[in-house]
């Protein structure tokens, strides 16, 4: 019973975080802010939802698989965000703030 409510709470928190992440992803002004919005919320929200599902399951094999997904996403999510930000920087996309300060993008980042 406790597990059930714990899992429901995790689901609710995870869904809320997902929504905030999506909002930031849609509304934030430049790519770095968007990566921030997605990457940060996504890791926590994913973990919460997967933990909630973990609490819901009884059999061993699904639990192992969920744990595997959880660990994998915890490694790969932040890495992907990092790689993306780094690639965008190397590709010449500059954050809004420095652009306003007078610096133009170094090279067109490609349409």
């Amino acid at each position: 019973m406790v597990l059930h409510w714990l899992s429901e709470a995790c689901l609710l928190a995870g869904s809320f975080l997902l929504l905030t992440g999506a909002l930031g992803f849609l509304r934030f002004p430049d790519i770095y802010a968007r990566i921030h919005a997605c990457g940060v919320t996504e890791t926590l929200a994913t973990s919460l939802i997967l933990v909630a599902l973990l609490l819901k399951s009884e059999a061993a094999l699904p639990q192992v698989k969920l744990l595997f997904i959880l660990l994998f996403l915890m490694f790969s999510g932040p890495t992907a965000s990092h790689a993306l930000a780094k690639a965008a920087w190397q590709g010449g996309v500059r954050p809004r703030a420095t652009r306003d300060a007078g610096e133009r993008p170094a090279s067109p980042a490609g349409r």
Binding site: I31, R34, C38, T46, I69, G77, G91, V93, G110
Partner: peptide
């Protein structure tokens, strides 16, 4: 999206959400 990285970010978001969707 305005540039490639935006699209990659979108595809990445989409992919993680698909993982969650299928798990759920």
């Amino acid at each position: 999206a305005r540039n490639v990285y935006d699209r990659v970010l979108a595809a990445n978001l989409f992919g993680t959400k698909t993982v969650l969707l299928i798990a759920a």
